[in-house]
C-alpha cells in the first residue's frame, strides 16, 4: 500500500498583520502545516504497513514541514520547488502536482489531501489533481474504513447528512478536520526526520514547461486585493449583564 499525502504550508491565519499598503504582511509570520492536511496525514497513519510519502509544492523552506510530517511517522518527503511556480492558481497547482505524481510517483494506491487550505480556502486543488490524473475523487470525508486491499469505504459529511461510498483504489480523498489530538512526534521520529533525505524536483524534472506553471499556466489571476469593510463596525463590549440583556431584547425584538 502506497499513500501520497499532499500538504501545504500556510501562514498562521489567526495572526494576520497588515502592511501600510493594506496587503497582508507575510514576513515574520509563522508557517504551519495546513490544519486540514494534518488530518490527512493522521488518516494515512491509520493504514498499518503503508508506505507514506508527503508531497508539497512550495519554496525550499517547506522542507521543514515535510520533516515535521516524517517525525510523526510518514516515510518520505518530496518537495516540488521552482521559482517559476510562483503565482500558481488551483488549476496550475493541480497540474504541477499531478505531473510530479505521474512522472515520479505513479505507483500510488491512495492520495490524501486536506479538504481546504485555511489561507485560500478554495477546496479546489484536490479535485484538480484527481481530474488531471484521471482518477476518482471523494471529498468532504470524515473517515475511511474497511480497507480490503482494493477498495475503501469513505464517510462523507454533507449539509443534509452523512453519505457512505465505497471507492476503488487508486483514488484521491479530501479529508475534513478531525477532532482527536494529532499524533505527536517521538524522539526517534525527530531523529529520523532530521536525517531524512528530502527529494527535490524542479519544473524540468517533472516534465513541465514555463507555459504550464505559475502565473503563465494559471487561467485565473487576482485583479484586486482589499481589506473587507467591516459592515458591522467594531464590536462593542458590554461590561455588565444588564447591558447584554438589553441588546438581546432590542436586536431580538423581544417585548418588555
Amino acid at each position: 500500500m502506497k499513500i501520497l499525502v499532499c500538504i501545504k504550508q500556510v501562514p498562521d491565519t489567526t495572526d494576520i498583520k497588515w502592511t501600510e499598503n493594506n496587503t497582508i504582511q507575510r514576513e515574520g509570520v509563522e508557517s504551519v502545516i495546513n490544519p486540514f492536511d494534518v488530518y490527512a496525514i493522521e488518516e494515512a497513519l491509520k493504514f498499518k504497513d503503508a508506505e507514506i510519502t508527503v508531497l508539497t509544492m512550495g519554496p525550499l523552506q517547506a522542507d521543514s514541514m515535510l520533516r515535521k510530517a516524517i517525525s510523526v511517522g510518514c516515510h518520505k518527503g518530496v518537495l516540488i520547488s521552482d521559482k517559476k511556480f510562483a503565482g500558481a492558481d488551483t488549476y496550475a497547482t493541480g497540474k504541477t502536482l499531478a505531473s510530479a505524481i505521474k512522472t515520479k510517483m505513479a505507483d500510488f494506491d491512495l492520495i490524501l489531501c486536506g479538504q481546504f487550505a485555511v489561507d485560500g480556502d478554495t477546496a479546489q486543488t484536490g479535485p484538480s489533481i484527481a481530474s488531471q490524473l484521471g482518477i476518482p475523487q471523494v471529498t468532504y470525508v470524515r473517515k475511511l474504513d474497511r480497507f480490503d486491499g482494493e477498495s475503501v469505504y469513505a464517510e462523507r459529511e454533507l449539509e443534509e447528512g452523512l453519505e457512505t461510498v465505497k471507492v476503488q483504489l487508486p483514488a484521491l480523498v479530501c479529508m475534513l478536520k478531525g477532532f482527536e489530538e494529532p499524533t505527536r512526534p517521538t524522539i526517534n521520529g525527530i531523529k529520523k526526520a532530521k536525517n531524512a533525505n528530502i527529494t527535490v524536483y524542479s519544473m524540468e524534472d517533472i516534465g513541465l514547461t514555463p507555459e504550464d506553471v505559475g502565473i503563465k499556466g494559471s487561467p485565473t489571476y487576482v485583479s484586486r486585493a482589499f481589506r473587507p469593510e467591516n459592515k458591522r463596525g467594531e464590536c462593542t463590549f458590554c461590561e455588565d449583564i444588564n447591558c447584554l440583556a438589553d441588546k438581546i431584547k432590542v436586536f431580538g425584538g423581544l417585548n418588555g
Binding site: D89, T90, Y91, G94, G120, D121, T122, A123, Q124, T125, G126, P127, S128, A130, S131, Q132, Q137, T139, Y140, R156, E157, L158, E159, S218, P219, T220
Partner: peptide
C-alpha cells in the same frame, strides 16, 4: 458553493482547462 457544487465545479474546470473562482 455547496458541498456538491464544490466537488463538481473543480472537476469540470480542470477538465475544460479553464479557471474557477471558489466560494
Amino acid at each position: 458553493a455547496t458541498t456538491q457544487g464544490r466537488d463538481l465545479a473543480p472537476r469540470i474546470s480542470a477538465s475544460l482547462h479553464t479557471g474557477l473562482t471558489a466560494d
